[in-house]
Design a protein around this nucleic acid. Structure first.
Lengths: 219, 219
DNA sequence: GCTGGGCGTTAAGGTTTTATCAAGATCGTC
DNA sequence: GACGATCTTGATAAAACCTTAACGCCCAGC
């Protein structure tokens, strides 16, 4: 999906030559329709669309599928790239780009998506999180009871184990788009999770803060 | 592409002897046409063209491809070199130059362009940068914790690995357009990164200074 | 040998971000 | 409608960070 005909054409030619099936669109609305209709393995999205903001498109797609999304942006659009990644994009390529680079990222995206049988149980030295059963057990045997909100927050962090998750991303996933800036919620709930899970809540071992960026589940 | 016949001839002879396919031009317009026609792996561009400014040529090429561009300039044309790099050139060589140096930079440019940046993980001998997880691990196993600003700066440099990134570009990406001239910030933050990443911060191996130009992530 | 510019280094001030606590509002259930 | 649990909100203290300025170094040019 791209609003520049020349790029769309070049991509179509290159990808078709490599035996990809390609369908294209030149604005957000028809792009969303095409994704719903064709169920592609990957989506390539230019952030400069004529009719709507790129992040809106991403959210539209993420509402019902985890199809990998690769974003195209021009040099210097750092904040828009970050917004796109926050909204759920998987990777980005800066224009102008070499076809080789795009193809490499495309392959990587497909590979990641097809080999993602996420592990339903995650263990640390002090507790075990069972994502399927929605259950947390401390290593001494006690079950930890979490509220709905606490669980949702923990689940997002655990599913991204080792990865930094931005505040915006967490707020969006747990509280919804409207709460993107309410970082107070995060502090309160991260503190509650720490009190329930960490051996020493004041010196977190698993629920780590990355100041200015977000949180990370490590261990 | 060069307006001095003797240099063009010397380059052609040397490069052809080393099994490169060479096509030449002596002004900007025909140079652009040649790039479009021949799709070279690398472009060598002299900044002193008769018909148009070198940066115009760079922008013309960058509009549709990321083919590496190596700039030739005479000594003392600092500002023009910077402008060329800002416009999207990959590297520069100052005239008069040794053929060995040019060949080395040429090989480096080709290698960079063809090595697909498949994985969002970049490793050096001393540390590993995981761009997706926003995580830096030292080879001895310790995680390095970076602040938001430090991380952004490192990310830009790593994504342009081996390539010279101008001060202006860095400032623009990390601090925004309004800070284009605050090169003080760069010194402070590059120093901090070196202290955290380099085995010997006072003799950088990876975060390299290009005096008057910018910085380069090598290794 | 002096001077000036660019770079590296350091430390302190002020600001922003985070942790913690507690009280009020809301929700679901009985 | 009452109760308990949960969620929201606000206040305050603590920590981390960004910015700024000063100083020393090195190199090039005079």
């Amino acid at each position: 999906m791209d609003d520049e005909p020349s790029i769309v054409r070049a991509l179509r030619i290159n990808l078709t030559a490599r035996k990809y099936e390609v369908s294209t669109a030149t604005d957000g609305a028809s792009g969303l329709a095409a994704v719903a209709r064709d169920r592609p393995d990957v989506m390539i999205l230019d952030l400069g669309l004529p009719d709507m903001d790129g992040t809106e498109v991403i959210r539209g797609v993420r509402g019902w599928t985890s199809t990998p999304i690769i974003v195209l942006s021009v040099w210097g659009e750092e904040s828009r790239k970050v917004a796109a990644l926050d909204a759920g994009a998987d990777d980005y390529v800066t224009k102008p780009f070499g076809m080789d680079e795009l193809l490499a990222r495309l392959r990587a995206a497909v590979r990641r998506a097809s080999s993602a049988p996420d592990e339903p149980v995650v263990s640390t030295g002090h507790f075990t999180v069972d994502l399927a059963a929605k259950r947390v057990t401390r290593q001494d045997g006690d079950d930890v009871s979490l509220t709905h909100t606490e669980w949702q927050l923990l689940e997002v962090l655990v599913r991204n184990r080792g990865r930094l998750v931005t505040q915006r991303q967490l707020l969006q996933e747990v509280w919804g788009t409207a709460y993107e800036t309410e970082s107070n919620y995060l502090r309160v709930y991260v503190a509650q999770l720490r009190r329930k899970l960490e051996p020493e809540p004041s010196q977190p071992r698993y629920l780590l803060t990355e100041p200015g960026m977000g949180y990370r589940f490590g261990g």
